[in-house]
Amino acid sequence: MSKCKVCREPAIIDLPRHNANFCGDHLQQLCRRQVEKAISDFEMLRPDDRVLVAVSGGKDSLAVWDILLELGYNADGLYIGLGIGDYSDISGRYVRAFADERGLTLRTIDLREDYGYDVPTAARATRRVPCSACGLSKRRLFDDAARDGGYDVVVTGHNLDDEAAVLLGNTLRWDIDYLARQLPVLPATSGFPKKAKPLVRLTEREMAAWCIVRGIDYQVEECPMAAGNRHLGYKETLNQLEARSPGSKASFYLSFLDRMAPLLVGHSQAATDGLNGCERCGAPTTGEVCAFCRLVATASAHEQVPVEMMGRRR
């Protein structure tokens, strides 16, 4: 039976990329230190920042909220009801239970009630993949909630697997604009709050383990809209590499940040220059009407599409 690398007590998890095993206490220590290092290296947060954590009910967002509180940050939660049938109903229950048990402040937005549409309907109305409409909605509502609530930074639970998978996709297409913006922290700019991803040094497996060790109940079920998407395929491919060569994911992503991202700084700046204000909402956009306003107009005018119908016609 393997022993913890630090204390030699029985281990509960093996982490091949660290060539080590850990007990529950020292797994938590490892995770906290990795988050502290990410926050420090990329200047993500200041001690007195008001932080808004975007929480979905999944392991990563609840874990990052938990870790930031552990580290002493002033962090509230933001939950967006996406209207994805039972999946959304259940995810909301996990988030509310987490917040209630700890006496935390949780802000909530409901796409259907507040904006007149939901993700399945938006996907059908715009003929885009559901993840596209979902991501566009969430990014915009995170920005608005942070600005309206007076928060200094929006934190999301994107982890090393998420970032490595996106990097693989962007690299396969040599999409320079996206590569230039694929950073763990984006500074506040006109109309956009600062955004940070404190989990970029930790894997999905480590975050799931954090939740289990900490007794955090989270939604294990996968979003029915995401099943089979390209992003999950990239993750599987990277995990095959990781199995043969532990540490590959961290090397791929963290070396990109270290060696490649600095070369793209000028390009990143060019991508945000020359933005106009949306004529409907004033948000920064390259056109006259921003993508979110166009989405709301199209999706809210469409007949509601139940999630069960989405598998029949995309």
């Binding site: 392991k59 990563d60 993949v129 990014r139 998420d162 995401a226 599987e236």
Partner: peptide, 10 residues
């Protein structure tokens, strides 16, 4: 046996 892979592309 709990899967840990999750997430859409957003």
């Amino acid at each position: 046996i709990r899967p840990v892979i999750s997430g859409g592309a957003a």
